[in-house]
Write a protein that binds this DNA or RNA. Structure first.
Length: 442
RNA sequence: UCCCCGGUAGCUCAGCUGGUUAGAGCGGGUGGCUGUUAACCACUAGGUCGGGGGUUCGAAUCCCUCCCGGGGAGCCA
């Protein structure tokens, strides 16, 4: 018997097992806010209706004690949620002593140190339910479109996009290994075997970033498909994001409402999204006077017109997105600022066939993807230009040696997507146990 | 790595232009109340003012330094 099914049992006597979330004592009455993971329900203990012992238990029970409650379900407009339990029996399974998180305000440091308990709070539970919904929607969408889930390794022998942001570890007698920062290269190999695939798992970035958009360990889904072009992958990214948002709206409306999310704005997330090329975006930034902070050689900070060739930072992306009420794909970035494996645009060799999807409402970059370089010589050249160890990429070059085909893929960050959809300020609340620059516990 | 802000009771904070014995609310405890929604009322316990050093007759308060945390930049999902 769970709280979420309570409305079906009006008038009946039920037994619930769970935890005491809050207690109010009022003479001969005790109000207990009870939770069992599926919902919260008020239990009312009235002294004349129960034994001396049961009343004393209810009166003295503490926050987060585990309990078994038996009573009659009734509709009650004064109760949060509309239903309450008129308690007949009340047992304490385990009495909690000095539970640290109270219904009042706490600071982020305190809450993160108690993350193992913080997740019991209704708000955190709601966010984690939405996260589960986002993951379910992704699998639903990809499985339904013929993509095969194929897991990439987490321990890898080399970097995917450069060595500056890798977590390094010793791998027995074989030297150094690294925690994967992307499953993409393996996804490409899998796509050559299975056609349409996706990897889904944790990725690791040893970036020393301290913002509300960054984690050192985060989850990413990376679809990769043989014979897909940049246009195909952009269409698919739009389809997928539309599906995720509408799925969560359908299945987790209650949680989103509880979190205070503006649902009308999410309803609008329907195809087609907006698109612009990098060059058009630079043009827009210049027209709207969005400058770039630059440091001069003598250390002074100056503002300059946004130069073509520079990568966008968060301030530029945010400025760009203020005009949009749904996501926008920016495509065809300068080759210099993007990864070695991205294919050059045959119509303009200064740019690569890459795309990022930016979410509105300060959601930021949620997707990065590209058409991959499928020519053996061109790819080898890129690896050398990026000063990457050629021997580590022999297997990857093999994919261009034995039946190379055009192919494309993208990665979608789970936590950033959850942050945008729920509207929570900080990414640390979108994963059960966040890993950040200065925080690895609990 | 760089820039800005902060660290005082279990929690959230006030006090900080130096000056008696360091405060409030919440939480805990005790008592009161049959409708509470972060209840309310009364009483009560609870502090090496982040660590170290310095200035001073006197430091939570000023200076130096280290540690810890928050926000942002860069980089990125």
């Amino acid at each position: 018997m769970w709280v979420e099914h309570l409305s079906r049992y009006v008038g009946e006597t039920v037994t619930l097992r769970g935890w005491v979330y809050h207690r109010t004592r009022k003479g001969k009455l005790v109000f207990l806010r009870f939770r069992d993971g599926t919902g919260i329900c008020q239990c009312v203990v009235f002294k004349p209706n129960v034994s001396e012992e049961v009343f004393e238990h209810a009166r003295s029970v503490t926050q987060e004690s585990s309990v078994v409650v038996t009573g009659t379900v009734r509709e009650e407009s004064r109760a949060p949620g509309g239903y309450e339990i008129d308690v007949q029996d009340f047992q304490i399974l385990h009495l909690a002593v000095d539970y640290p998180i109270t219904p009042k305000e706490h600071g982020p440091d305190f809450l993160l140190k108690h993350r193992h308990l913080w997740i019991r709070s209704p708000r955190q539970a709601a966010i984690l339910r939405v996260r589960a919904g986002v993951e379910r929607a992704i699998r639903d969408f990809l499985d339904g479109n013929g993509f095969i889930e194929a897991d990439a390794p987490i321990l890898t022998p080399s970097a995917c996009e450069g060595t500056s942001t890798l977590f390094e570890l010793e791998y027995f007698d074989l030297g150094n290994a690294y925690l994967s920062q992307s499953g993409q290269l393996y996804a490409e190999a899998l796509a050559m075997a299975l056609g349409k695939v996706y990897t889904f798992g944790p990725t690791f970035r040893a970036e020393r970033s301290k913002t509300r958009r960054h984690l050192t360990e985060f989850w990413m889904v990376e679809p990769e498909a043989a014979f897909f072009t940049l246009d195909d992958i952009m269409d698919m990214a739009e389809d997928m994001v539309e599906y995720i948002v509408q799925y969560v709206l359908r299945h987790h409306r209650r949680e989103l409402e509880f979190l205070g999310r503006n649902l009308e704005k999410l309803e609008k997330v329907r195809r087609p999204f907006y698109r612009m090329s990098y060059t058009e975006a630079v043009e827009w930034l210049r027209q709207h006077d969005v400058k770039l902070h630059r440091k001069t050689p003598d250390g002074k900070e100056i503002l300059v017109d946004f130069p073509w060739g520079e990568d966008f930072g968060a301030p530029q992306e945010e400025a760009l997105m203020e005009q949009f009420d749904k996501p926008c794909i920016v495509h065809r970035y300068p080759a210099e600022v993007k990864a070695f494996y991205m294919k050059r645009d045959p119509e303009d060799p200064r740019v690569v066939l890459a795309m990022d999807m930016l979410a509105p409402e300060k959601g930021g970059e949620i997707i990065g993807g590209s058409q991959r370089e499928d020519d053996y010589e061109a790819l080898k050249q890129r690896i050398l230009e990026h000063n990457l160890p050629l021997e580590d990429f022999q297997w990857y070059l093999d994919l261009r040696k034995y039946g190379s085909v055009p192919h494309s893929g993208f990665g979608l960050g789970i936590e950033r997507t959850v942050r945008w959809i729920t509207g929570v300020e900080h990414i640390r609340e979108t994963i059960p146990f966040p890993r950040m620059l200065y925080r690895i516990e609990p």
